[in-house]
C-alpha cells in the first residue's frame, strides 16, 4: 500500500458452495456491483471452515474475514452452518484475547437467491473495515 493511496481493506471470504457462493454468483449474473476488495474461497460447507483458516488469514494481514453459509435450517449438509456459528463464537472470544478485533470476522447467512444481500454485505464490511483501519498484524509483518 503506497502512502498516498487510500486504505482499501482486503477481505478473505469463505463461501459455502450451496448458498453464499451461489448467491455471489447471482450478484455477478445480475451485474450488481460491489467493491473488488473481497477474495472468495469456495468451501463445500461453512462447517468446514477451520478457525485456523481465519486466524491464518488475519495473521497474514487480511483486514477482514467473511464466512458465508446457508440460513439456519437451510444447510445443504443439515447442520454445518450451526457448527460454523458455534466455532466462530468461540473464535471471536479468543481473537479479542489476542488483541485482534473480533469485528474483523463476520459470519453471515446468505442464500443462493440473495445476490443483492451478498453485494451489500461486502459493501458494509468494506466500510466497517475502513473505519477500523488496517489490520495491525499487517504492520507487524511489514516491519
Amino acid at each position: 500500500m503506497g502512502s498516498g493511496e487510500e486504505f482499501e481493506p482486503k477481505i478473505v471470504a469463505f463461501l459455502c458452495n450451496w448458498c453464499t457462493y451461489t448467491g455471489a454468483d447471482l450478484a455477478g449474473v445480475s451485474r450488481i456491483q460491489y467493491p473488488p476488495n473481497v477474495r472468495p474461497i469456495r468451501v463445500m460447507c461453512s462447517g468446514s471452515v477451520d478457525p485456523m483458516y481465519i486466524l491464518k488469514a488475519l495473521l497474514d494481514g487480511a483486514d477482514g474475514v467473511l464466512v458465508g453459509g446457508c440460513h439456519p435450517g437451510d444447510c445443504h449438509y443439515v447442520s454445518g452452518n450451526y457448527k460454523a456459528r458455534r466455532r466462530l463464537a468461540v473464535l471471536s472470544a479468543i481473537l479479542d484475547e489476542f488483541g485482534i478485533d473480533s469485528r474483523r470476522v463476520w459470519f453471515r447467512f446468505i442464500s443462493a437467491s440473495e445476490g443483492a444481500l451478498f453485494a451489500k454485505t461486502v459493501r458494509d464490511m468494506r466500510d466497517a473495515l475502513k473505519a477500523l483501519g488496517p489490520n495491525p498484524a499487517r504492520a507487524l509483518w511489514i516491519a
Binding site: 451485474r31 456491483q33 473488488p36
Partner: peptide, 16 residues
Amino acid sequence: NIREQCSWPHQNEPGK
C-alpha cells in the same frame, strides 16, 4: 471464477 465473481460485479474497476 473470474467472471461471476470478478469481471461482472466489478465492471467499473478494471485495474482492481
